Simulated assay, not measured.
Amino acid sequence: MDDAQRDEPQSGTSGTATPFAITEAATFDAPWAMAFLPDGRLLVTEMAGALRLYDPARNTTGTISGVPEVSHVAQGGLGEVVLHPQYASNQRVYFSYVESGDGGLLGAVVARARLVLDDSGGGALQDVETIWRQSPKKSGDGHFGYRIAFDAGGKLWISSSERKEFDPAQDMGTNLGKIVRLDDDGSVPTDNPFARQGGVAAQAWTLGHRNILGLAFDGSGQLWAHEMGPMGGDELNRIEKGANYGYPLVSNGDHYDGKPIPDHATRPEFRAPVITWTPVISPAGFIIYSGDMFPAWKGNGFIGGLSSMSLVRVEFNGETAREAQRFDMRRRIREVEQGPDGAIWLLEDGTRKGKGALLKLTSTRR
């Protein structure tokens, strides 16, 4: 079984009473990610290559043209979309997608563009510029990762998964199986931990990752990331400069063919996860909540669950964390975002049936 086949609810998933109301706002074709604009409208990516603009106030959906040619495969296509920290002044958006190369090889790309909106509820990407590529491209159709986040200082962070090939995660001759840190134009900061090695190694902040599908900064600026383990052993990691997280040499799961992988405890030189999940939750999407609608949850993490069909709440305590609550959503949750008013928004994964709902969670407590 590979990650794309984690379709059935896993044992151990438990529902609980939800302190929120769920409103289905819209549906999209295999949506993957979303980002709110300052005016409250929402950019939504669809894996086949469409970028949509949803207006919650009017309940209308428009299209943003100018997306480059996207290769849509089993676990990839048009992926992440985020705003530049100075979007209000520069109108720049950053997005990731899968592109093909020679011989049909595939790799993730991060590009930036200027978003120009029109009066009809849509707009266009202009001045599109590719600023980063996975290297090398591979033949497989999975484990792209390609999540994007900006830190408070304007540095760009990218999750680059190991493309189902295991060994690249430990190979500094590739940028696969790494978390990448760049300046906003794609150049390499001189204070990256491997900057002196040059080449793609200079891009890396950490290594030893499998399939990283969530990046989020907490209120202190600490980066946290989750990744899908193999057969068992999904992880939440505290990301530390230059650290090696061990994959595929260690994992709290095993290979899908049944071959065991040594646990993290056997190799203390590798950074161990702060949470592991067996049975898996198949994590996807990640926020650390800072809104006012759910004040008791400020500083908590929220992770979407694919096979677990859940929304997982995580409480942090310094350098540690724990799963505090799991909400049974009865849908495969692909993406999580916080709205301007503090509502929590979810995208239902549409890779199995095509259509995926956009859900808004609002408080039922007064």
Rank of each mutant, 00 (worst) to 15 (best):
G221E: 03
T18F: 07
P279V: 08
G103V: 09
N300M: 08
L42H: 05
S363P: 09
K259A: 14
F20Q: 07
M309Q: 15
A124C: 04
L358D: 12
N300V: 01
I287Y: 11
A343Y: 03
S363I: 10
P19Q: 09
F316I: 03
K353I: 10
D2R: 15
Q325F: 01
T362G: 12
A33E: 11
Q126I: 13
S100L: 09
P168Q: 08
F28G: 07
A57Y: 00
P340F: 11
N244E: 06
W297D: 14
A108G: 15
L37A: 12
I333N: 05
L125F: 12
G214H: 12
F28E: 04
N59M: 06
H209F: 08
S11A: 14
T18W: 08
I275A: 03
D183C: 01
A152F: 02
I64Q: 01
E99R: 15
N237C: 10
R322L: 09
A169E: 02
G221L: 05
Y256R: 02
G339L: 04
T206M: 08
K138I: 04
E80A: 15
F28T: 05
R313P: 00
S14F: 10
T60V: 04
L306R: 11
N175Q: 11
S187H: 12
V314N: 04
T60A: 13
A88N: 13
G285Y: 04
A202C: 06
G214Y: 12
E337H: 01
N317L: 02
R41T: 15
G62I: 02
R313N: 14
T278L: 01
I148D: 02
L358Y: 13
L215E: 11
D328C: 02
R147Q: 14
T320L: 04
V67W: 00
D55W: 03
H255T: 01
V110Y: 06
S159T: 07
S100N: 13
I303Y: 06
S290A: 15
G177W: 04
G76T: 05
Q197A: 10
S89I: 09
Q75E: 15
E99Y: 08
V314C: 08
T266P: 02
S11L: 14
T278G: 04
G122L: 12
A357C: 00
Y245T: 07
G101M: 06
L53N: 12
Y256K: 01
G354T: 06
I158R: 09
A216Y: 14
L176M: 12
D171V: 05
F20P: 06
S187Y: 13
A149F: 03
L115S: 06
A202K: 04
T45Y: 04
D55F: 05
G219W: 09
G145K: 05
E162M: 02
A48S: 15
L236A: 07
Q126T: 15
E337P: 00
G229W: 00
G356V: 06
E235W: 11
A57E: 13
G76Q: 04
V44A: 06
N211W: 04
M1S: 14
D171H: 11
L361K: 08
R267M: 11
S363V: 10
V73L: 12
Q91V: 00
L215C: 12
Q197D: 09
A35T: 14
G66W: 03
G339I: 03
I275C: 02
T130S: 11
V81K: 05
K138T: 15
N90P: 11
G140F: 10
I22N: 01
G140L: 13
